[in-house]
Every structure is written in structure tokens, then in C-alpha cells.
């Protein structure tokens, strides 16, 4: 007969201690997030005004607004998505619906993963070398958008693939059994069902693109350019780069601090809103699916 030591009390004590530690540490992570956001909110809210959003920067970027940077970032987001969204979705459709399991599929997946792991500054180097210099697009919205587009391509592909994979195979078989072609099945059955998740992924990648700095440093971003772009071959200011500039190397760092807070707040608000929209959409659609 075993003589069990009565370790119940110490067992319990250890468990309590461990769980408490983990809880505190997890909450600490949340506290960090809260501190960052509240800090920006507190300091930035005082700066934000209609003028700040719609005016040109003035007096060495210590006064005025950030309108051109907002417009620039919107241009870049739009440009990069015009490229990344179709290519990414089509690519995911091919991989998930057409490609057979095998070497090609594995290779493409490996490459997509690798692309996702390449640091953004390397995209900056690449974009500068290919788009700006070799193809001669110069520092322009076009170069910047393409660079950003390539950067988010893996994200779009991955989220789309996940969305496609979550479509149950019985839908496909049902449609094919009714005599629909593969393309019809994808268009009429698979895409409509996965559409919400694809859109959610798109919105999340918009959030990411809008905050990227390193890839646009040498492909599009202008230090100071108080006018709006006329074509895709123009340079623009962009929110993240603007924040970098006025917080590290502006003409007068101390005086442009309020501008920096405001810019940071606008930037983070943009990302937050994208996040929230994506989450709401996800919840809304998943409810709808359940009801059906």
C-alpha cells in the first residue's frame, strides 16, 4: 500500500500562486496597451481639431495641420490595395481551389511564408531599387503603393485562404453535383460564403499598411510637401513618416511635439477604427451564418 504524502495543501498553494502570477502578468500586458493608448489620447486630443485635420503644415511643421499626410496615407492605402487585393485573392483561390497537393503548392506556400517574414526595411530597399531606380517610377505614389502592396500580399493571401478553407467541402460537392463548373462553383458558392472573412482580412491589412514607415522612406515619402498630389507619379507626405520626422528631426522638435501627439493619435485612431470595423464585421457575419 502506497503511503501518499499529504501534499494537497502545498499543491493547492502552488496552483494559486501560479495562477495569480499568470493573471497579473496577462493584465500587465493589457495595462501596457492601455497606457500607450490613453497617453496618446490624453495628449493628442487637445491638438486634434477640424483645422488640424484639414490644414497644411505651417511654420516648419510646428503649426498648422497634417492634411497632406492624411491624403498621402489614404492614397498609399488605396494604391497598395488596388494591387494586393486582387492579386492576393486570386492567388489564394488558385492555391486553395485549383492547385493539387504537391510540390508546387508547398513551394508557393513556403515562398509566401518567407515573403511574410521579410522585414519591412528590406521591402524598402527592394522597392527603391526596382520601382524607383530600375523601372524609373521615381519617388512616387506608384512606387510606394507597389512596395506596400507586395508587403501586404502575404497577409491578404493568408486571410483569404483561411476564409476559403472554412467553406465546408459539402457546398462545393453539392454545387458540382448539380452540374456547375468549377469556376461557377467558386463564383456562386465558395466566394459568397467566404466573402465576409475575406473583407475582414482586407480591412485588417489596410490597418497595417497605413502604419508602415520603413517601406515608404525611400519610395515615396516626402519630408515636407504642402500640396496635394496630382498623379500617381507625385511624391506625398504620409502620416507615419510625418510622425517620425516631427518627433526626431523636425526643425524644432520641442515646438512640434503637440503636432506629433496629434499625428500619432490620428494614426492610431485609423488603425483602431479598422480593427473595430473588422471585429464588428466578423461578429455580424458569424451571427448571420449561425442564423441561416
Amino acid at each position: 500500500m502506497i503511503k501518499f504524502a499529504d501534499n494537497r495543501a502545498s499543491k493547492q498553494r502552488k496552483e494559486n500562486l501560479a495562477f495569480l502570477t499568470f493573471r497579473i502578468m496577462s493584465y500587465f500586458v493589457v495595462v501596457i496597451l492601455a497606457v500607450i493608448i490613453l497617453f496618446l489620447l490624453y495628449n493628442g486630443a487637445r491638438v486634434i481639431s477640424w483645422d488640424f485635420i484639414t490644414a497644411m503644415p505651417a511654420e516648419g511643421m510646428t503649426k498648422g495641420g497634417i492634411f497632406p499626410a492624411i491624403v498621402g496615407t489614404l492614397c498609399l492605402v488605396a494604391g497598395s490595395m488596388v494591387f494586393a487585393f486582387p492579386v492576393g485573392v486570386l492567388s489564394a483561390i488558385y492555391i486553395n481551389e485549383y492547385a493539387k497537393d504537391g510540390l508546387f503548392k508547398r513551394f508557393v506556400k513556403l515562398m509566401t511564408n518567407n515573403l511574410a517574414g521579410i522585414p519591412s526595411i528590406v521591402f524598402g530597399l527592394f522597392g527603391m531599387s526596382l520601382f524607383v531606380n530600375t523601372l524609373g517610377f521615381g519617388d512616387s505614389i506608384l512606387s510606394g503603393s507597389l512596395t506596400l502592396g507586395l508587403l501586404t500580399l502575404p497577409v491578404v493571401i493568408r486571410t483569404t485562404e483561411e476564409a476559403l478553407r472554412s467553406v465546408d467541402n459539402s457546398f462545393r460537392q453539392g454545387s458540382l453535383a448539380l452540374g456547375a463548373t468549377k469556376l461557377q462553383t467558386i463564383r456562386k458558392v465558395v466566394l459568397p460564403i467566404s466573402f465576409p472573412n475575406i473583407i475582414t482580412g482586407l480591412i485588417l491589412s489596410i490597418g497595417r499598411v497605413s502604419g508602415e514607415t520603413a517601406p515608404i522612406l525611400f519610395t515615396v515619402a516626402a519630408y515636407f510637401l504642402p500640396k496635394l498630389p496630382h498623379s500617381i507619379f507625385d511624391q506625398v507626405m504620409a502620416l507615419p513618416y510625418h510622425l517620425y520626422v516631427i518627433s526626431t528631426s523636425g526643425t524644432n522638435i520641442e515646438e512640434s511635439r503637440p503636432m506629433a501627439y496629434g499625428t500619432a493619435l490620428v494614426l492610431i485612431a485609423f488603425v483602431l477604427i479598422m480593427n473595430i470595423i473588422a471585429n464588428l464585421l466578423r461578429r455580424y457575419f458569424s451571427k448571420k451564418v449561425k442564423m441561416n
Binding site: 486570386l90 492567388s91 488558385y94 521579410i118
Partner: peptide
């Protein structure tokens, strides 16, 4: 059309690979 679409899809799926290769070449 099915074939053409499949071709386009296939081309799209090679973009990431091409990009990685181009990055390697240019870098």
C-alpha cells in the same frame, strides 16, 4: 473561359515567389 481564368489565377499565385526571387536578385 475556365482555362483562361485558371491561367490568371495561376499567374497570381506565382507573384509571391517571383517577388522573393526578385528581392534576392536585386538585393
Amino acid at each position: 473561359t475556365e482555362k483562361i481564368v485558371e491561367g490568371i489565377l495561376f499567374l497570381s499565385s506565382t507573384v509571391t515567389t517571383l517577388t522573393v526571387l526578385l528581392i534576392i536578385v536585386f538585393l
